[in-house]
Lab assay of single mutants.
Amino acid sequence: MMAYMNPGPHYSVNALALSGPSVDLMHQAVPYPSAPRKQRRERTTFTRSQLEELEALFAKTQYPDVYAREEVALKINLPESRVQVWFKNRRAKCRQQRQQQKQQQQPPGGQAKARPAKRKAGTSPRPSTDVCPDPLGISDSYSPPLPGPSGSPTTAVATVSIWSPASESPLPEAQRAGLVASGPSLTSAPYAMTYAPASAFCSSPSAYGSPSSYFSGLDPYLSPMVPQLGGPALSPLSGPSVGPSLAQSPTSLSGQSYGAYSPVDSLEFKDPTGTWKFTYNPMDPLDYKDQSAWKFQIL
């Protein structure tokens, strides 16, 4: 009977010793046993002879290597770790002494450095960015050149030099007046198309007034536009458009034309069986010896 009264063996659950049927240790109110408190290391007290050895090595170098620390530790009968900690504390003490010396050398008012006064946003004049500046400075420094007289040679050079070769001289006033084509001369031969040399188009003023001019072949195509416009036809070669000034309004060009419109200028042929003959000019830059190549039959 006494065997049943004795408590059973101890069981360990999660490293906790349980005594038989008792489960009081598993209750929430019972805390787990805490780790033992780490003991504080005792402070090391250095003797005068030990301090002399350490100070002598510190005077040589503030960062001794492990071999120098072990050698000193053997002399003063201390572990190497204590020597390492002593050098660490000695360097910190040396830095603190240097900072105190710097503070003593500075004057009393030198510690508080005078800061520059901050400028207020409204006091300083700042350039306004509302208006974009002129990058080319046209509004201040540029002045347009004065327009020359209508009959000045410089204007003629600016007008005619675009179309004339570089080897030719500017046309005088008398020749510029001949550039304007007359109405009857352009409409006299509506079906004849003559190819003149390129030099005649640039230099010869008579080429624009003769039936064999460069633009005589364009007349049949330009004249039928007159009834559609409801007024006189516009002429690209009329009046002052080739003269001194090219800047004319469309209203000033509306009254200039080749001449009176005639039914002869239409595109319809009077004789459907007729042929169109292209007159060959020996001055043509295209060297075609066979003139029969310039004739064709309209079917």
Rank of each mutant, 00 (worst) to 15 (best):
L74S: 10
Y261L: 06
S49L: 11
Q62E: 03
I138F: 04
P133Y: 05
Y11D: 00
P127M: 10
Y195C: 03
P64T: 12
R95I: 11
D265S: 15
H27K: 07
P236N: 06
R40A: 14
E80N: 06
E71Y: 14
P145F: 06
N89M: 15
A29S: 07
N89I: 15
V226L: 08
A59H: 06
L186I: 03
M2Q: 01
S292N: 00
P244Q: 06
A207R: 05
K113A: 01
Q256K: 12
S141N: 07
G239S: 04
S292A: 06
L222G: 02
Q28K: 11
V242F: 09
G230S: 02
R37Y: 09
S188K: 07
D130Y: 12
I162N: 00
Q50A: 10
T45L: 05
G8M: 10
V226H: 08
S19C: 14
M5C: 00
P211R: 11
A207E: 01
S169G: 09
V85N: 13
E53G: 12
A158T: 03
G243C: 08
E80M: 08
Y63F: 12
T154M: 10
Y191C: 02
L74H: 07
Q111G: 05
G109A: 09
R91N: 14
V131L: 05
P220Q: 04
A207Q: 04
K295Y: 11
I298W: 02
Y214K: 05
D130R: 05
S124W: 06
Y191S: 00
E80Q: 02
D287H: 12
R90Y: 13
S262T: 11
Y288C: 07
F201S: 01
K120G: 03
Q99A: 04
Q101T: 04
L267T: 01
K60D: 10
M283H: 11
A166G: 08
Q104Y: 07
E173D: 09
Q62A: 08
T155D: 02
S150P: 04
V66S: 05
D290Y: 15
S212R: 12
G110T: 03
S257C: 06
F201K: 03
D134T: 04
G8A: 06
A293Y: 08
S143C: 03
Y32H: 07
V30G: 03
S22W: 15
Y32A: 01
Q175M: 11
P224E: 02
I162G: 00
D290R: 11
D219S: 13
D140W: 10
W276C: 01
G217K: 08
G230Q: 02
Q297D: 00
V157P: 00
T194K: 06
K270V: 13
L286S: 06
L25F: 07
T187P: 06
Q101G: 09
Q100I: 08
Q105M: 05
Q62V: 09
H27E: 03
P127I: 06
E80F: 09
S235P: 07
P282V: 14
D140C: 05
